[in-house]
Amino acid sequence: MISRKLQVFTVLLVLVILAMAGYFVHLKRKAEAIASPQLQQALVAPVNGPAETTLLFLPNDEDGTLRATSVTLALPSDSGERARLALHTLIARGMEKDSPHPYGAGADVHDVFLMDPNSAVVNLNQSLVAGQHPGIQNEQLTLYSMVLTLKAQLPQLARVRFLVEGKSAETLAGHVALSDWMDVAQVQQSAPIAH
């Protein structure tokens, strides 16, 4: 004979388990929603400065060009942080649905260090590299779009160096070399900009 106390306890235990399972499913859905590119969009560009107009160079894999697009962003006064936010916005655009130049989930720029007014070091995250479609054109567009977007922010910029998680890398995804500085004038000259 099972005591009444034990029966009540068992029912309560089952209820707790069911509630926890429900909560777990809810958490999992929430986590998936956070990881989705759409929601990442909403997290872009915290408003912490006056709205300004700046240029983003958006890549298009279909015709292999970069398109200058003017956007209005709230940018902070610190130039390194401004540069990082501009690149962050550029990548976020690429994560939109049906983007002509998709990035991997979680792709981002950790930091932009300004060594002096002429030199910037861009620290890419591993997700950006892991999600990069390999190919000369694809890799060129990813890097040149960032160099030109930075140049629009920093008129004195003469050279850019890319790091991955703080380390020097041989190539972005097997094609375009990251092992040396990129000369901004050379990039401007050879970038396939759509007119």
């Binding site: 279909e62 050279r159 500085w181 000369d183 050379q186």
Partner: peptide, 18 residues
């Protein structure tokens, strides 16, 4: 490359400062 159209022909760049 499966992306884009036609052929792309590249030469390399070396940083002028180096």
């Amino acid at each position: 490359s499966p992306e884009g159209h036609g052929a792309r022909v590249y030469s390399t760049l070396l940083p002028p400062a180096t």
